[in-house]
Amino acid sequence: MSRLTTPVGAHDHSEGPADAPVTLVEYGDFECPYCGEAYPILKAVQRAVGDRLRFVFRHFPIVESHPHAGRAAEFAEAAGSAGRFWEAHDMLYEHQDALADANLRHYGKALDLDAEALQAAFDGRYDAHIRADFMGGVRSGVNGTPSLFINGVRYDGERDVASLVAAIHQAAGARNI
């Protein structure tokens, strides 16, 4: 059973209460179509579970397969440093067919990101963070994208809303015992 080796912490991008009984970590790639498929499902899971869930996104760009995934991750980090990571995350997953540099710069304007800060991101300012996410994922048994961990344990079940919500409730129940 693969387990998360890097604990969730302040360096992570998270939504939901830090003391939620369940933490769901996604290792994702912004250009991966399977992550794109999972995006609305995970939103629905968040809505269904509410404050009992903390959702964390970590980068796992597979750039040989997805040539725009690296830049997209850099874009998200640039937005994150401006406090707008999740808006960028959503924007990227809602526009997976348009992730070229020009598109990303356009999204940057829409999010009011500083053009120079975005360029610095493209020049590698956040690459160490992205690489650390990636390698932490490898060490945790990430086996493709998206990979999900529920309270630190890799989730290999079906990725539909009902199955995920059931697994999350089970994890919450286990914590209460």
Binding site: D29, C32, P33, Y34, F60, I62, V63, E64, S65, H66, F134, M135, V138, V142, N143, G144, T145
Partner: peptide, 16 residues
């Protein structure tokens, strides 16, 4: 029939 499959993943980890 997936991306990020096993061989693609290992390809990404080759430097390691």
């Amino acid at each position: 029939p997936v991306c990020g499959d096993q061989m693609g993943l290992y390809n990404a980890i080759l430097p390691e």
